[in-house]
Amino acid sequence: MAVLALLEHDNGAIGDVATQVLSFGAAYAAAAGLPLHAVVIGPGGEAAAEPAGRFGVTTLHVAEHEGLVAYAPQAIARGVAELIGRLSPVAVIGAGSERGNEVFAHLGAITDLPFAANCIEAAPGEVAQVTRVRWGGSLLEEARVHGALKLLTLAPHSFEARPAAAAAQPAVERFTPVLSDVDLAVRVVERVQTQTGGGVSLASAKVVVSGGRGAGSAEGFAPIEELAGLLGGAVGCSRAVTIAGWRSHTDQVGQTGTKIAPEIYIACGISGATQHMAGCKGAKRILAVNTDPEVANTADFDYAVIGDLHQVLPAISAELRKAGLK
């Protein structure tokens, strides 16, 4: 018996989300009084042994198969299911990323067990108790997970990665899962670049200036674009703007748009609907520019300027030019 962590990796290199999964898995394993194992699927996985050991993993299972070079969600799940059959873990824990949740949904279907996506807390037991995220983080759900094996993913950046007190040297066990053509029917056959227009990527921008319904029209984004340009930032928008056809969906910040994490988010003519705020929880600071003084009572906004963005933004841009920015 064990707790099994499924790690996303790139040729054995694991990122922040995987170390969070390891820490979360280690806490769950400790509470259950069981060892923590980890599994990596795809080429180069054994290189994850060293970082996994730092988080207390005792055994690293490395699955390799010629069909697992390109991403193939059902095949990954089949490999994990095969390991589950041998290892009988009490829980499998993975990342609540798009891909992590996809693989776990396949695992849930293969094992006919419930799957709790995007947990932030979990307590083991015959019935596990979890707290999971709803509405893109605007609401939490306490739930009970039934079934002999618990399938849980961890909401990204909701648990601090903490290495174990003493690093272990995990045993490495290799296996080649048995995969059928059906398991491999859905796999990435090509990766294409998208045109970002040479601009700053919304997801990684240090400054994002967004407009909402208050921008008034597609042309109303001119002062927003000007300010974003001066600050070397990206332009965003709310869902209302996308639906109105003023901006492309690629600019949309929100639960069903892009999740951003800038140093400062300048939200202009945006009221702060939950759909929108779910996309900017990663922003360090939020400045609202709005004609409605009510924005000052919105908990998510750290700063506010009360006024029309069409007057306030040009004044900020002029001030920045005075300070020498171009």
């Binding site: 067990l113 709803r134 609401l139 739930a143 039934h146």
Partner: peptide
């Protein structure tokens, strides 16, 4: 099998 107990605001 995934049984809701209660909802709460963060």
């Amino acid at each position: 099998a995934l049984e809701r107990v209660r909802l709460k605001l963060p």
